[in-house]
Amino acid sequence: MNLLQVEGLTKSYKRGFIPRKTEVLKGLSFSVPAGTVTGFLGANGAGKTTTMRCILGHDYADGGKVDFFGKPLDVEGRRRIGFLPERPYFYEHLSGVEFLEFYANLSGKWKKADLKARIDQLLKRVDLTFAKDRLLRTYSKGMLQKIGLAQALVHEPELVILDEPMSGLDPDGRMALADIIVETAKKGTAVFFTSHLLHDTERLCERLIVIKGGATIYEGSTDALLDRGGVEFEINFVEGGQRKQHKVPTQEQLQPELKRLLAAGATIIEVRRLRPTLEEIFVNMALRGSEARP
């Protein structure tokens, strides 16, 4: 079942002193199935943030269809989604606890006693218990990102949408956030997020959607996309007391090559599957323009 289904989304803006129409989304289509972690990739200006704005109803799309849980986003649907915007600014006059209470109450899910327990649990999970009574204006960027993630999760949504959740975080913070995303997905919540940090995306996402110029150029599994870049195998072995390395271009050639090496008295140390990184593939697709349609 698709939690989010986008079909033929179009959006243009009028910009400039003498307004000129700029078409940002040109019939974008994709879906986010239940229980998956889906990455949403595109170069700067590809239309990622505009897509987020349009699907969540912050901006009105010119055309196309957006369904959450099988129907257009309504009040009931909003109870089932969580959202963390890019570079989040939050109410600085609230403390960490007040902030989470505010969003939980707006979602209308929790009773007072249960809410306290939920907030304590979330603050502990994002490692902010020590700052729970401090005003948000005293939080660092990393802390704001964490409390932002907590507000997106406070009402236990079925789908969490995160816009650049890891931008500006140090490696430690990124790892902590990645752990929370993995843990959230394990509990059955689908996660849909944009990121420029492709290493993290490759590690976290089982599905990817890549857009370019306001249209989808790839939608499918991360593995399938990585395999498109070509796979080869590297055999590390010892022969005649010397450590050597040999590359085999296809899986079909791997076993015969291994048998040949063993027959020749070589000791196999390691066989590695080599394929381009997501970063290399992404640069080819989204920046240089070669398409990789499924």
Partner: peptide, 14 residues
Amino acid sequence: EKKTILTILVRPIS
């Protein structure tokens, strides 16, 4: 301007 509205309007409110 501060984009606080983005997280408010995705909650079940009109």
